[in-house]
């Protein structure tokens, strides 16, 4: 049975160095089912490295990451082996990349991109796959008439929405997002954030969101983790951290946003 009183993902004592640089220094975090957790900090703070370590894409020098799967079993992410990790990545997990080109198949139509995860889990009815893809395109505000177009013909914002549809189509329980609004125009960003917020709350997905954009974090996240030099310097409920930052670095981050 699934237990909602236990974290869906928890990390303990993650450390990782690149030469003399400590990218992660004894990082521990918990993520609860249905919760959106934002990891904020400047570039080089270690937030993207943390995301990759949590998702099993990068092995830490020390520490462990535990995922509690749909059946309630606790799995060690870095000990489960590649087959299990891959299966997880295409079923219960999703990953939204900053550059949609890394998360999409650029040579495959929008419908094929959305359909891939369905087919990976056994869907074999072309018409059903197509209907589901059309539904999801609509849901991310892309006209279903574009279903046979390739992502190369889409704008940056559309590509990112397509990547989100492709990721969410199999209703994952946990999604990792790496700067999902990075590199987009401000007006496009706002619309995309709204869309993500709606989908995540409708589907009850747990999200680890990495962003340097405090405004995005405020809009999406229930809870914030502030990172600097590979360490967690402050964490707490989003409103609390942003309205009453305690660590001087957080104060600086928040004020620089307000000033901008």
């Amino acid at each position: 049975m699934m237990a909602d009183d236990e974290p869906i993902l928890s990390a303990r004592g993650l450390s990782l160095s690149f030469g003399a640089v400590r990218a992660l220094d004894e990082v521990s975090i918990d993520l609860w089912p249905g919760e959106v957790l934002a990891i904020v900090g400047e570039s080089g703070s270690g937030k993207s490295t943390l995301l990759r370590a949590l998702a099993g894409e990068m092995r830490p020098d020390a520490g462990r990451v535990t995922y509690r799967d749909a059946s309630g079993e606790a799995l060690e992410v870095h000990a489960m082996g590649e087959p299990a990790l891959r299966r997880l990545a295409r079923t219960e997990w999703g990953f939204v990349r900053q550059d949609a080109r890394d998360g999409l198949r650029m040579g495959v139509s929008a419908g094929g991109n959305v359909g891939e995860r369905l087919m990976a889990v056994g869907a074999r009815h072309y018409g059903d796959i197509r209907t589901e893809a059309e539904r999801w395109l609509e849901r991310v505000e892309i006209s279903p008439s574009r279903i046979d177009d390739r992502p190369g013909q889409f704008s940056g914002g559309m590509r990112q929405r397509l990547q989100i549809a492709r990721t969410l189509v199999t209703r994952p329980r946990l999604v990792f997002m790496d700067e999902p609004t990075g590199g987009l125009d401000v007006s496009v960003q706002a619309r995309l954030l709204d869309l993500i917020r709606g989908l995540v709350s409708d589907l009850g997905i747990a999200v680890v969101l990495v962003t340097h954009d405090i405004a995005a974090a405020r809009l999406l996240a229930h809870r914030l983790v502030v990172m600097r030099h590979g360490r967690v310097v402050e964490e707490g409920l989003t409103d609390r951290v942003l309205d009453d930052p305690r660590h001087p670095y957080t104060q600086l981050l928040v004020s620089s946003v307000l000033a901008a």
């Binding site: 419908g111 087919m119 990976a120």
Partner: peptide
């Protein structure tokens, strides 16, 4: 899944 994507296309 990849092969099936090709057939879909």
């Amino acid at each position: 899944g990849l092969m099936q994507v090709k057939l879909y296309e």
